[in-house]
């Protein structure tokens, strides 16, 4: 019984970790930069395809393919930021929605054209498959790995945003561009780097997610709800908000599916509604 409970808790946390990983990039662009980038999934998909490509074509091992996914998505993100996105920082959220959905449509068609509509295979290293025993309990190896990645990313992002000069500059630039520029902060550069960071995280999430979520050209729209769940329910402007949301949703979703599978489909949405009722401006809303 207790073993079950621990098992469910572990699965829930690992599922929440996955949600966090695919959504954290959007938490950066939406939360920190206040840009509604619905093309987040397209960057994640790009990371996914990069991972598959370098692994299958060039035989790059999985652990090296992941940084490649980050870099490729970040680079493309930076490029698009310089050429297109930056024109829309002052536009309304609705314009941003239309623009980024348009980009997503283009990405989906382009991916279909290049890779075809079928699922792509990914082979994770054998020590990440199967289960490992800890204290007599079985834990999924890949799930443990996902949790580990989340810990690293959270610490790194937390440090970057809260403790470094760059983080302070981001926060300043987002809060008031004019004053920041007046203080000698290169707002253009800061925004470009932040956007690249968000895109890179999306790409990393895409690469990590294939093992569980699969990868085909409809990826950006298929999981858009999950990206939004993580980035929007947690409250904009923090990393802890999205993390807490993802973990709560993950644990309850898994528990619901295990204990009351009949209503398994409803749990995640019903819980989200409850969270929104309890915390209308997000779990850890920095900006009300």
């Amino acid at each position: 019984m207790v073993a079950h409970l621990i098992g469910v808790l572990f699965d829930g946390i690992s599922y929440g970790s996955l949600l966090f990983l695919i959504g954290v990039g959007l938490a950066v662009t939406l939360g920190l930069m206040n840009f509604v980038n619905l093309a987040h999934g397209a960057f994640a998909m790009l990371g996914g395809y990069s991972t598959v490509l370098v692994m299958s074509r060039y035989g790059v091992p999985f652990f090296l393919a992941l940084p490649v996914a980050f870099v490729v998505s970040a680079a493309v993100g930076a490029l698009l930021e310089r050429t297109l996105y930056r024109r829309l920082y002052r536009a309304s959220h609705l314009d941003q929605v239309l623009f980024s959905i348009g980009l997503t449509f283009m990405a989906i068609s382009a991916a279909t054209f290049v890779w075809g509509p079928t699922q792509q295979p990914v082979r994770v290293p054998s020590f990440l498959q199967g289960q490992v025993q800890i204290f007599g309990l079985d834990f999924g190896a890949y799930r443990l790995f996902l949790i580990g990645v989340v810990v690293v990313i959270t610490l790194a992002l937390g440090y970057l945003v809260e403790r470094t000069r760059f983080g302070a500059q981001i926060r300043a630039a987002v809060d008031n561009q004019q004053v920041s520029a007046g203080l000698g902060i290169n707002v253009d550069r800061i925004f470009c780097l932040t956007f690249a960071l968000g895109s890179g995280l999306a790409g990393l999430g895409g690469g990590l997610g294939i093992e569980v979520l699969g990868l085909d050209p409809t990826f950006p729209l298929k999981y858009i709800v999950y990206f939004l769940l993580v980035a929007a329910v947690g409250g904009a402007g923090t990393i802890s908000g999205p993390l807490a949301t993802a973990l709560i949703l993950g644990v309850f979703d898994v528990a619901g599916k295990y204990y009351v599978p009949e209503i398994g489909a409803f749990v995640i949405y019903a819980l989200m509604i409850v969270l929104l009722i309890l915390f209308p401006s997000g779990l850890f809303g920095r900006r009300a």
């Binding site: 469910v8 690992s14 979703d253 898994v254 528990a255 599916k257 295990y258 009949e262 398994g264 489909a265």
Partner: peptide
């Protein structure tokens, strides 16, 4: 019966 948009089968498989 699993939700027909469902990314994680862990709990069901358990």
């Amino acid at each position: 019966r699993t939700p027909f948009t469902n990314p994680d089968f862990g709990p069901f498989i358990q």
